[in-house]
């Protein structure tokens, strides 16, 4: 059952992105930025928690989960460390994604060639 929920959740978010890409002049960069902000807004209203409960790990795969995690880390930082936590905690949960992307990109770039 969790497989079906995860597939539907990821599929629908990708479908929405593709519809925006096809029917407007926005580029892929616009859409990913838009979806991150959307994820933060959904998290702000507490809606993203329902998605996490419903779709499990698949809810953290689309880029919307990036906004969700950023917002949650930021607000949690305020409650644990005060105003400083807004800044110091902001990247705590998304650090794994950003750092792994940078590290893998660097080493793979050293060993691979760009396509002509």
């Amino acid at each position: 059952m969790i497989y079906l929920n995860g597939a539907i959740f990821c599929g629908i978010i990708c479908l929405l992105g593709e519809l925006i890409l096809d029917n407007t002049k926005l580029t892929a960069g616009h859409i990913t930025s838009l979806f991150v902000v959307l994820g933060a807004i959904l998290s702000f209203f507490g809606i993203y928690d329902y998605f996490t409960e419903w779709a499990g790990v698949a809810s953290s795969v689309p880029i919307t989960s990036f906004g969700n995690l950023l917002y949650k880390a930021c607000i949690e930082g305020y409650y644990t460390k005060g105003a400083l936590g807004l800044f110091s905690n902001l990247l705590s949960t998304t650090s794994a994604g950003i750092c792994s992307a940078i590290i893998f990109a660097f080493f793979i770039t050293l060993f691979c060639k760009a396509k002509d």
């Binding site: 992105g17 890409l21 990109a105 793979i108 770039t109 760009a114």
Partner: peptide, 24 residues
């Protein structure tokens, strides 16, 4: 397109492909 750009794979792809393109 969006099937791979919207999931986290798109983020990794954009980082690695721009690194590869500007390596020269």
């Amino acid at each position: 397109r969006c099937g791979l750009i919207i999931p986290i794979t798109g983020f990794a792809h954009s980082v690695t492909s721009s690194a590869l393109d500007y390596k020269k």
